[in-house]
Amino acid sequence: MVQYYWYPGGYPQQQQQMTPPNVQLPAARRQEESYIENILRMNKGKLGTFYFTFEHSKEHNSIVITGYVEAAGRDHVILSDPNGKRYLMLMIYFDYATFDEEINYNL
């Protein structure tokens, strides 16, 4: 890709955009980064207790869900309780989670 820049003298300067060579990252760098959704994804299927707070709600200021991690994305988590009821919760309301077993965290 060629880009032209105009300088005060009025003459265009041509600048080539360099494409870096394909570099393989070390194995440790290829793993997922330490974000909440990645940690939850690594613990899919585990039973945990999840705490959420809704700051601007008069009726339900906070909620606690005991359930299994089914899926997690950048802005949401899907949980299912032991009775099979599923919850789609937004991560902006997520406070923390507790697990009764070891948490997978191999970053």
Rank of each mutant, 00 (worst) to 15 (best):
D75R: 09
Q14I: 06
E70Y: 01
V2M: 07
R29W: 03
V64I: 15
Q16L: 12
P20G: 10
N38P: 05
P12R: 12
A97H: 07
L90M: 09
Q16Y: 13
G84H: 07
V69C: 03
H56A: 10
R30L: 13
L88A: 02
R30G: 00
F99W: 15
I63T: 14
S34I: 10
I65A: 08
L47C: 12
I39L: 14
E33A: 13
K58Y: 06
L40F: 04
I39C: 03
Y35S: 07
I36M: 11
G48R: 11
V23H: 06
G48W: 12
F50I: 08
Q14F: 02
Q16V: 15
P82T: 10
I39D: 04
K46S: 03
Y87P: 07
Q31S: 05
H56N: 12
F54W: 04
P26Y: 02
I92A: 08
Y51H: 15
Y96H: 15
E102C: 00
H76Q: 08
P26L: 04
R74F: 05
N83S: 14
H76T: 02
V77A: 00
H60I: 12
Q3Y: 11
G48Q: 12
A27H: 02
H56V: 01
A28D: 08
G10I: 07
T53P: 01
G73K: 03
F99C: 06
N43Q: 13
D95I: 05
H76S: 11
M89G: 04
T66A: 10
L40A: 08
S34A: 14
A72M: 02
A28M: 02
Y87K: 05
I39R: 15
G84T: 09
I78M: 01
P8E: 07
A97N: 11
L88V: 01
R86S: 13
S62M: 07
E70N: 13
